[in-house]
Simulated scan of single mutants.
Amino acid sequence: MGVQLHSEPFDPGVELARFEATLPVGSVGATASFTGTMRNHNEGDQVCAMTLEHYPGMTEKQLEEVVQDARQQWDIIDALIVHRVGDILPGQPIVLTAVCSAHRAAAFDACRFLMEALKSRATFWKKETLLNGETRWVEKNTPGH
């Protein structure tokens, strides 16, 4: 299924169901997914909003390469990355990664790989708005391990 960027809020459950519905009945033995949600705090400060910018065309290509790398490393049936861009509020999903395979090990491993690889390889810029109205660019990602 591949990669989707959304400028509006999305429902991870709906996206996951849509993804699974594209696969042949009985072909999937395991589905692993991860949903990342915006927190209302970062680096000790209260955060009330975030703007997530990207480079159209390039970001999608980078995410598609991440999916292709997962397909080459694990025996998976299909993979999905859904990612928000634009204005995001605390509690809203930012990212969904999902992998379907015949067996759980490949699904778990490939799903974690998608998330970790996109955090380090895809071109996104995050600008937080703090409770006091100040804005700042997020300079680093939280560690995944």
Rank of each mutant, 00 (worst) to 15 (best):
E134W: 01
L5W: 05
Q72E: 13
P143C: 12
D11C: 14
G13N: 08
A79N: 07
D78L: 13
L5G: 00
R84Q: 07
T142F: 04
A98H: 03
E8L: 15
P9Q: 03
G44H: 08
V138E: 14
E134M: 04
A106L: 05
L114Q: 12
I77V: 12
A98I: 06
D75L: 12
H54T: 13
Q68C: 08
S101W: 09
G29S: 03
F113E: 00
H41K: 10
I88C: 10
E134S: 01
G57I: 03
E60Y: 00
V95F: 03
M1T: 14
F124E: 01
W137N: 06
H41C: 07
A21G: 10
F34Y: 13
T142W: 08
L118C: 04
F113D: 01
D45L: 06
R84V: 04
V82A: 13
G26M: 07
Q46W: 05
T123L: 12
K61E: 11
A105R: 14
K140F: 10
K119H: 13
G133P: 07
H103G: 02
V85Q: 09
T97M: 07
G26F: 04
T37G: 04
F34H: 06
V47W: 08
N141F: 15
V3E: 02
T37A: 04
G13W: 09
V67E: 00
E53C: 00
T22Q: 11
G57P: 02
A32R: 06
K119V: 11
M58P: 00
T135E: 13
G13I: 04
E60R: 01
Q73G: 08
P143K: 07
A49Q: 09
K61T: 05
E53N: 06
G144P: 02
H54N: 07
H54E: 04
D69Y: 00
P93D: 05
A105M: 14
R104V: 04
E128I: 10
V66Y: 01
H41V: 10
V82E: 09
S120W: 13
Y55A: 02
N42F: 15
E116G: 15
A110S: 13
M38G: 06
V85D: 06
S7H: 09
N132R: 02
A98V: 15
V25Q: 11
I88F: 04
H145A: 14
L23M: 10
G13Y: 02
A70W: 03
P93C: 04
W125Q: 09
D45Y: 05
A107E: 02
T51D: 08
D87T: 14
T31Q: 05
Q92D: 14
N141L: 10
E60H: 02
L114R: 06
D109K: 13
E64Y: 02
P24W: 05
N40M: 12
V25P: 05
W125T: 11
M115L: 15
E116K: 10
V138G: 09
R71V: 01
D45P: 00
M58I: 14
G86K: 06
A107H: 03
M1L: 14
T51I: 11
A102V: 04
A106S: 12
L80R: 10
K127D: 00
F124Y: 01
W74G: 01
Q4G: 00
T31A: 12
L114N: 08
F34I: 06
V85S: 10
L63D: 02
P93K: 08
R121T: 05
G91S: 14
D87I: 08
T129Q: 12
K127R: 15
M1Y: 06
S120V: 14
P12I: 03
A79R: 09
L63E: 00
